[in-house]
Amino acid sequence: MLKVDGVSYRYRDAASPALQDVSLSIPAGGIYGLLGPNGAGKTTLISILAGLLDAGHGQIALNGQPLAAARAANPRAIALVPQDYAFYPMLTVAENLRFFAGVLGLNGREIKIQSDAAIAFARLEQVVGKRAEQLSGGLRRRLNLAIGLLGQPQWLLLDEPTVGVDPQSRHFLLDAIAALPAAGTSVIYTSHYMEEVEAICQRIAIVDQGRVLAEGALADILSSPEPQVELELDRPLPPDLAERYAATPLGNFKFRLFFRLTVGMTSELPRLLDELATAGCTVKNLNFGQQNLEQVFMNLTQRSLRD
């Protein structure tokens, strides 16, 4: 369990704090999503957890032990995979892995075992002898991730690990990351891509302007508190139905029409569908009782541009 309790942080000369009274409980053995717009404070929080910054206020405990003491006792307990390609472009894949395993203090045999394991995990077998600067974006991401796994960390902090890769590499990376908890590594995952977080995270926190806006199990956060139904129709909603169900148009995206309607109970749904059929409206999509993460995120963080 990684427990963040009332942590605040302000960069030197910054007008407002990067983190304000952030409290999170991150259970081990899963993938925890950290969501937020640019400048929300995600990277600051990750940096504090990785030991790059010292929390100004508040406490962080790893398995009940203060973070600094836990890191000192086991420097390899928490590993960071930064957003940048943090390795040496002039070294080959194998040389990079051996170097980072070496600076972790592993001995010769462990270096070999762990490098091989990392190569197998990230499927880098075909490119071990290739210089990192010659790799494609997807392979660089895989190498960046593989380096993070050297030293078998208990916790892996991933900062936007899929930026700039093609769909195939993204799926591979997501599958690989999803398999990490079973292998004994808990993951904290930050991303802008909602579908990624929905796909692999069991618990999430939504952060904005240094504050936690929502935290909990993904299913709980996505469940709709009100009996609302979202529809995509092939034509505009007839005015009488719109009035009766207190409909709000959700927008007109690429000639597709979305509406949110309020129904009293689940049992009223069949009647609504009958009425729509009678009015000649074809329902192309229906969502009841569950929001998607993007809606929740946009509702919580508002739509204004951040940078």
Partner: peptide, 13 residues
């Protein structure tokens, strides 16, 4: 520039 120094710091170098 590539954040390698930061990575090395997180590795306790």
């Amino acid at each position: 520039q590539q954040g390698t120094l930061q990575r090395l710091r997180t590795m306790g170098v």
